Computed example of a mutant assay.
Amino acid sequence: MHHTSILVGLTGGIAAGKSTVARELTALGARIVDGDAAARDVVDPRTPGGAALVRSIAELLDTDVLAADGTLDRAVVSARVFSDADLLRQYNALLRPAILSEVGARIERARRTPGVVVHEIPLLSRTTAPLPWTYDLIVTVEAAEDLRLRRLQDGRGYAPAEAERRIRAQGEEVDRIAIADVVVRTDGTLEETRSATASLWERLTADRPPR
């Protein structure tokens, strides 16, 4: 299908500020496809596909990952998979097909009208397996590792070792930058991040066709 919209892949390491940049882009007029939201929705046990996927995850990780209402206890799941690299790979292999299908459908709907569509994706780098869609521009949001560790500990309450595990599990900054057209750094003030995002928006909405 021919699209008159621009599709942007927005990624970045955990606690680097990706969600902040996504919010700024939304305020400027972008339509966001939230990869994390899609990942949550595909394990909704109120849907047939979600119920089957939740059962498979419980078989892999044990039934104590289920909350009383039958949904996944995300804190328990995260603690288990982020402490075991092999288990994390198996968990991702279960989720990936369902997430790709859901995200693809959301991107297709969002691209039916002109404008800027931003797919907020947590894991996108040169090591990522091929995706069933192509971005017109890839943006990664980055910040110094010590700052990200501090944000995870102070803002989200992670213990130091857990914060470091989360950062390691999401890959290396150099691998994200290797495929990025634009790097937005958030080491500075919020106003500096907003200014960088505004510059990005100008690039996205310039009177020229997508590359």
Rank of each mutant, 00 (worst) to 15 (best):
1 M>N: 08
1 M>H: 12
1 M>Y: 07
1 M>R: 13
2 H>K: 03
2 H>E: 09
2 H>F: 00
3 H>G: 05
3 H>P: 00
4 T>A: 13
4 T>I: 06
5 S>E: 00
5 S>I: 06
6 I>Y: 04
6 I>V: 03
7 L>Q: 05
10 L>W: 02
11 T>P: 03
11 T>K: 10
12 G>S: 06
12 G>Y: 02
13 G>M: 04
14 I>W: 01
15 A>Y: 03
15 A>D: 04
16 A>F: 04
16 A>Q: 06
19 S>C: 12
19 S>G: 15
20 T>S: 15
20 T>Q: 10
20 T>V: 01
21 V>S: 02
21 V>Y: 01
22 A>H: 01
22 A>G: 09
22 A>K: 04
23 R>I: 13
23 R>N: 14
23 R>Y: 07
24 E>T: 03
25 L>F: 07
25 L>T: 03
26 T>R: 08
26 T>Y: 02
26 T>V: 03
27 A>H: 00
27 A>S: 11
27 A>T: 07
28 L>R: 15
28 L>C: 13
29 G>R: 07
30 A>V: 01
31 R>D: 08
32 I>Y: 02
32 I>S: 01
32 I>V: 06
32 I>M: 08
32 I>T: 02
33 V>F: 07
34 D>C: 08
34 D>Y: 06
34 D>E: 06
36 D>N: 05
37 A>T: 07
37 A>S: 10
37 A>Y: 08
37 A>K: 14
38 A>V: 12
39 A>G: 11
40 R>F: 08
40 R>A: 09
41 D>C: 04
41 D>Y: 06
44 D>F: 14
44 D>S: 12
44 D>H: 13
44 D>E: 13
44 D>P: 14
45 P>R: 15
45 P>K: 09
46 R>F: 00
48 P>V: 01
48 P>A: 02
49 G>Q: 13
49 G>K: 11
49 G>P: 11
49 G>R: 06
50 G>I: 14
50 G>D: 14
51 A>L: 15
51 A>R: 14
52 A>N: 12
52 A>F: 08
53 L>W: 07
53 L>G: 11
54 V>E: 13
55 R>N: 05
55 R>S: 06
56 S>R: 15
57 I>A: 09
57 I>V: 15
57 I>S: 03
59 E>I: 00
60 L>V: 09
60 L>P: 00
60 L>G: 07
61 L>A: 05
62 D>P: 12
62 D>I: 09
62 D>F: 08
63 T>D: 12
63 T>R: 11
63 T>Y: 05
